[in-house]
């Protein structure tokens, strides 16, 4: 199911890094954070599988917008932060 622009989402709070060798394109600082779908960018083979030359399912990739001021305590963060995130890292907020 395609996520429409404006949909509120949460990035999964997951740490595959603790489970063994992996290659993850979701930065640590957005995991567990809420954001807004800006737009669907396209569909691409999952890099987490490509990195190990495994068959890679095609996944939707979204631009997700965050308001990052609370991410870091001192408050010098950007007004908006936009990150490319694959669908399997997103859940309903």
């Amino acid at each position: 199911m395609m996520l429409a622009p404006g949909t509120r989402v949460r990035v999964k709070l997951d740490w595959p890094e603790l489970r063994g060798p992996c290659h993850i394109r979701t930065p640590h600082y957005v995991r567990g954070e809420e954001g807004t779908i800006e737009r669907h960018l396209g569909d691409f083979p999952n890099p987490e599988d490509l990195a190990f030359a495994r068959p890679a399912p095609i996944r939707a990739l979204y631009h997700v917008r965050f308001a990052p001021k609370p991410f870091w305590p001192e408050g010098a963060a950007p007004d908006e932060l936009v990150v490319e995130i694959f669908e399997h890292w997103l859940e309903a907020a």
Partner: peptide, 11 residues
């Protein structure tokens, strides 16, 4: 407004 784009994937 300052908007930062983290280029994390295929674009």
């Amino acid at each position: 407004k300052l908007r930062v784009v983290d280029s994390t994937a295929d674009y």
